[in-house]
Design a protein around this nucleic acid. Structure first.
Length: 756
DNA sequence: ATTGCCGCAATTTTT
DNA sequence: TTGCGGCAAT
């Protein structure tokens, strides 16, 4: 048990505690993964069967890392423990037990696009306005319901929910929810939430199944417990908490790093946990081994502003280290340029390699300018998250075929490929088929199989018959060809490549390459004998298993360690990672904290979550931390103006290095036009503009008259020279101070503020 | 049925 | 700015 020597006192206690419930509160960089893996190794060393240990994580990456590290300590037996994400472990179990809940074992998993498309269809079919009943909004409501264990029936009886929907002008969500559930069932499909929801129902309604898994999983560990929602917690509780149970559950989490409340996660689970499992032992890991002292102190400054939290003090015995650099810029492009310059400087001065560097942003949309800036300096980079490879249309189309072959009831897949490549089955025919399917409560596939009852034009009927034949042909091949061979065959037979090549553009070429890449991916899935996460079972190389992998895998899980490239990702994706040098960019009001948070009903809770997110971002850094913001940036195509983030102000200036900052940019949150005017004149022009724009407020047309000094949202300061036209069609000729010069602007559309 | 054009809405964050 | 959905022309 030599590994015990590598631990500090609290860590060792947490590792050697075996029986009964345990709660480990683990600050950032406190060796959480180490404790978890050693704990598992220790369990196995103590004679506990590896296959009775279940470890649940949030990301596949975390699961994989855990397995690898356990293997280092515990050797071969590590392969036999159950470790995976909530979603993948439950999907596995659900396939085995599918018949108990009325599903075939080869059910499809819908990703969020499939789900939204299904919802949009239902909304339209019921004559509701798709703009009002925005698919994402409806999906959110349904998702929230499922994650709170509210069935469609319970939803309809829930007065509060109905009232909320009414206030949001979507009173029929309950109906869509009900229909959506039916549609999924008929399509033999589960969405992400179903993997949890159905798992719960399975255990709830099948005592034999429940006791089987209670028997099986004697030791359960949950990582990132602060991010579990009610549903996940309920499943865990079902498995662990019962008469005669030894309550061998260990959860690890940090309330300060809870960043998924928007998805229904609640730190209430941590608080409840202490109540639900009396006799619980609590371990607090407070020593940070990751970051320098300045970074830790800054992080403490930030999180101290949050009112609700479990008390703990993060400390380190590392040196002060470098101060946190603050960069400010006038535009987003300029911000990117400066950040990249700083990267170059760090690389030269400290010999940091590309993969020790990460650029973290609040929203994926921010990545673009950094990409360009990195490109111009020839620094290799990789973007994680955002529009993933598997979200591309051409990729989804090919996958659609594969899905339909495995499970032809999969309505979303079928809809996608029924007329792709075009074969004369237009939208009119498809909606007719869908209508029949809904009325008869049958799957779309069944209707297609019996298309002669559908009274469609002969031509279309034949086209559908041919389509059905083709899919059946593919299905016959499943048994004696690999996933790769089949996929290749399908692509050939459907002439998808030919269709993609039609427009002779670069994008077309890219699309063809994407399809090829997809095929290569399938090939390596089939051929790779890398131990998969469920190596307890025979390696599953079936097409179905491939599809499940694809849908549950995210970009981040793929190959983070591969090359020496600068990494770009959202702060959310960065959770659990660490880098020598971290750049947090776009540290501005309305971006970080996000505008959504600032506009939310419960603004305090929302800003607290943003603050935790910022805390997570800051604590990713080991040695160097740089924060940057820009006073103006493009957003939906037009310029917006922002001030630096409140979070920046919350860090004591002791830890900040403001030397690189433009002196004029000491931003005061309150801006007073009168006495700032003089000061502004000494500042750089674009900055003056940015500053004034932050305060921009459009005036009514009636206030505009010849001679007025005005402020235009895009062109800045100007003076009205003349106004012509009448009524609401008045056109003003305005002379702008900046290079813009004279412009004729329709007052009806222009956003103009009259200054005096 | 298909193609192509126009107008509008979108950006939090993820399994 | 992009990307999607709706509509009109072929």
């Amino acid at each position: 048990m030599s590994y015990l020597n590598e631990l500090n006192e609290v860590q060792r206690q947490a590792v050697t505690h075996i029986d009964g419930p345990a709660l480990i509160i683990a600050g950032p960089g406190s060796g959480k993964t180490r404790v978890l893996t050693y704990r598992i190794a220790h369990l196995i060393d103590s004679g506990i069967a590896p296959w009775s240990v279940l470890t649940l994580t949030f990301t596949n990456k975390a699961a994989k890392e855990m397995k690898e590290r356990i293997a280092n300590v515990a050797g071969k037996n590590a392969g036999k423990i159950w470790a995976g994400t909530f979603h993948s472990v439950f999907a596995r179990i659900l396939r085995v037990e599918a018949s108990k809940i009325g599903y075939p074992s080869d059910f499809t998993i819908y990703d969020s696009k499939d789900t939204k498309s299904a919802i949009t269809e239902l909304v339209k079919a019921h004559g509701l306005d798709p703009k009002l009943y925005n698919a994402s909004a409806v999906y959110n409501r349904i998702s929230l319901a499922k994650n709170s264990l509210i069935s469609p029936k319970a939803y309809f009886e829930d007065v509060n929910r109905l009232l909320e929907d009414k206030q949001n002008k979507m009173p029929y969500i309950y109906k869509i929810y009900e229909l959506y559930v039916g549609k999924c069932k008929r399509s033999a499909a589960m969405d992400f939430d179903d993997l949890l929801y159905q798992m719960y129902q399975l255990l709830e309604n099948n005592p034999d199944v429940l006791s089987k898994y209670r028997e099986k999983f004697k030791y359960i560990l949950v990582d990132e417990f602060q991010d579990t929602n009610l549903l996940q917690y309920s499943i865990i509780k079902k498995l662990v908490s019962y008469d005669g149970s030894s309550n061998n559950i260990c959860v690890v989490g940090d309330d300060a790093q809870s960043i998924y409340a928007f998805r229904g996660a609640t730190i209430q689970n941590i608080l409840n946990f202490e109540k639900d499992f009396p006799g619980i032992e609590v371990f607090k890991l407070e020593q940070n081994y990751r970051s320098t002292n300045y970074i830790i102190q800054a992080a403490n400054d930030i999180i101290a502003k949050n009112s609700k939290q479990i008390k703990k003090t993060i400390f380190t015995d590392k040196k002060e280290g470098e101060l946190i650099r603050v960069i400010n810029a006038i535009t987003d492009t300029e911000e990117a340029r400066q950040v990249v310059n700083m990267i170059v400087e760090q690389k030269n001065r400290y010999h940091i390699s590309n993969d020790d560097i990460a650029i973290l942003y609040r929203t994926n949309a921010q990545s673009r300018v950094f990409e360009e800036a990195l490109k111009s300096k020839r620094i290799p980079y990789k973007i994680y998250g955002g529009t993933s490879f598997y979200d591309r249309k051409e990729v989804k189309d090919v996958l659609g075929y594969l899905r339909a072959v495995v499970n032809p009831k999969d309505e979303e897949a079928l809809k996608r490929i029924l007329n792709y490549p075009t074969r004369g089955i237009g939208p009119t025919s498809i909606s007719k088929l869908l209508k029949i399917a809904t009325e008869e409560k049958l799957s779309l596939w069944t209707i297609c199989e019996n298309v002669h009852h559908a009274s469609l034009p002969k031509r279309t009927e034949n086209a559908i018959k041919q389509f059905v034949q083709m899919i059946k042909l593919f299905q016959k091949r499943i048994a004696n060809s690999t996933a790769y061979e089949l996929a290749k065959y399908i692509v050939k037979m459907t002439e998808i490549i030919l269709d993609l090549k039609k427009p002779r553009t670069i994008e077309a070429q890219n699309r063809v390459e994407n399809v090829t890449e997809l095929l290569d991916g399938i090939k390596s899935f089939v051929e790779d004998d890398e131990v998969d996460e469920f190596s307890t079972n025979i390696e599953d190389k079936s097409l179905q298993s491939y599809l499940q992998n694809v849908v549950l895998l995210t970009d981040l899980d793929k190959d983070l360690e591969e090359e020496t490239r600068v990494k770009l990702m959202s702060v959310h994706s960065s959770k659990g990672l660490e880098f020598k040098s971290v750049f947090i960019v776009g540290v501005e009001e309305n971006l970080f904290p996000s505008m959504m948070a600032l506009k939310s009903k419960d603004i305090n809770a929302a800003v607290d979550e943003e603050r935790r997110l910022f805390y997570v971002a800051v604590t990713r850094a080991e040695q160097f931390l740089t924060l940057s913001y820009s006073t103006s940036r493009y957003r939906f195509g037009n310029m917006t103006y922002n001030t630096s983030s409140r979070f920046l102000e919350e860090i004591s200036s002791k830890y900040l290095d403001l030397s690189t900052q433009n002196k004029t940019a000491k931003v005061s949150q309150t801006y007073n036009k009168k006495n700032t005017m003089d000061k502004l004149s000494t500042m750089s022009k674009p900055y003056v503009k940015a500053k004034m724009m932050a305060n921009f407020k459009a005036s009514p047309i009636s206030m505009a008259s010849v001679g007025c000094e005005i402020l235009h949202q895009r062109f800045g300061n100007g003076k009205i020279i003349s106004i012509d036209g009448d009524g609401s069609n008045k056109v003003a000729t305005i002379f702008f101070e900046d290079e813009v010069g004279e412009k004729r602007i329709m007052l009806k559309f222009a956003k103009i503020q009259v200054l005096e």
